[in-house]
């Protein structure tokens, strides 16, 4: 009765067995496997467009623009990149298109900043924010697990005191990861953060992960609440903020840009984490955000398991998209 299912493209078990699955770094083959669906979208379309043509013509440029739009890079970014291509239309051949686009995207991603998370000595605070359903709590569980495995002392602040059972969800994750948690159910989120910072400082934790309630960026009061949390961290541990991380669902369309803009202003964002990249979405919003907001992607969520959070590698990402 299952013949109506599409065949799954990759063999999950096969990936599972690979040793690298456990680490924080992702090898290129792993990465390519995971985002193969994304790759199909851009790479194959590009191949189709340029096949059987000798010259770069206007139709080709237009189709190229549409291919990029389909990957959620957004109209402005697509137009920007294709316009650059258009300028060199007569100097390049269709075969040059892929390298050209790769190079453009590479520049955009690299100019947005360093993609590696650099830990300091002593306490490192991570503020994790995002809209509802982006995957913040899950990401924190995985991040805690990662640092715990590296032998760090990890504390989690359950500052999502709003959503039903958010604290329970986080506690389950923290237990799985072997991290400690500060919970004050129903309390003011900023006070949870305050307590967590005090505890982290007093007990020499290396990592403090602050979970916050999901909020849509157009909710003034909720964004104010976030500013209050930021003020508390800045006052109590100004030197200890390692990352202010916005979590974005890979399925997000152009609203992702707006999210980055507003959260950046409210929380001094330092980077983006993109979740659910194991789905069929292209995650092209990464490119738009890097270009418009100069925010680098540092983490990617690629599955449901504890080990499915990886460092972002822009070279791999671009190679996987185009090769």
């Amino acid at each position: 009765m299952f013949e109506f299912f599409k065949k799954k493209e990759e063999n999950a078990d096969n990936i599972e067995n690979k040793e690298e699955k456990k680490g924080f770094n992702l090898s290129f083959s792993m990465f390519k496997n995971i985002i193969s669906k994304t790759q199909n979208a851009i790479s194959e379309s590009v191949s189709e467009i340029i096949s059987s043509k000798q010259k770069i013509d206007d139709d080709m440029l237009e189709e190229m623009e549409e291919t990029l739009i389909k990957a959620d890079v957004g109209l402005d970014t697509a137009v920007y990149v294709v316009d650059k291509l258009r300028e060199k239309q007569n100097k390049l051949t269709p075969d040059d298109i892929k390298p050209f686009l790769k190079n453009e995207f590479n520049t955009i991603l690299k100019e947005a900043g360093e993609c590696k998370i650099c830990l300091k000595d002593g306490l490192n605070i991570f503020l994790i924010t995002g809209v509802n359903g982006a995957g913040k709590t899950t990401l924190i569980g995985k991040l805690a697990y990662q640092y715990k495995n590296e032998g760090k002392r990890v504390l989690i602040a359950a500052a999502d005191t709003f959503r039903a059972a958010a604290e329970e969800q986080l506690e389950i994750w923290s237990n799985r990861a072997g991290a400690d948690i500060v919970r004050k159910d129903g309390a003011d989120p900023a006070s949870v953060v305050f307590d967590a910072i005090k505890k982290a400082q007093a007990e020499n934790y290396n990592i403090l992960l602050v979970d916050t309630a999901g909020r849509l960026q157009n909710k003034f009061n909720l964004m104010e609440e976030l500013r209050k949390i930021v003020r508390v961290i800045k006052k109590e541990a100004p030197e200890q903020i390692t990352e202010s991380l916005l979590v974005i669902d890979a399925n997000t369309g152009q609203n992702g840009l707006k999210q980055a803009e507003v959260f950046k202003e409210a929380t001094d964002l330092s980077s983006i984490a993109i979740t659910k990249l194991d789905g069929s979405a292209k995650g092209g919003i990464i490119i738009a955000i890097a270009k418009e907001m100069k925010l680098p992607v540092k983490l990617i969520g690629v599955g449901e398991k504890m080990t499915d959070l990886k460092e972002f590698n822009p070279d791999y990402f671009i190679d996987a998209l185009f090769d």
């Binding site: 389909k70 669902d249 369309g253």
Partner: peptide
């Protein structure tokens, strides 16, 4: 989710087909 991008169509189509 109303914030979904281009992929909404594939998501909806597959759920609908199955």
């Amino acid at each position: 989710d109303s914030m979904t991008g281009q992929e909404a169509i594939n998501v909806a189509q597959t759920f609908n087909e199955q």
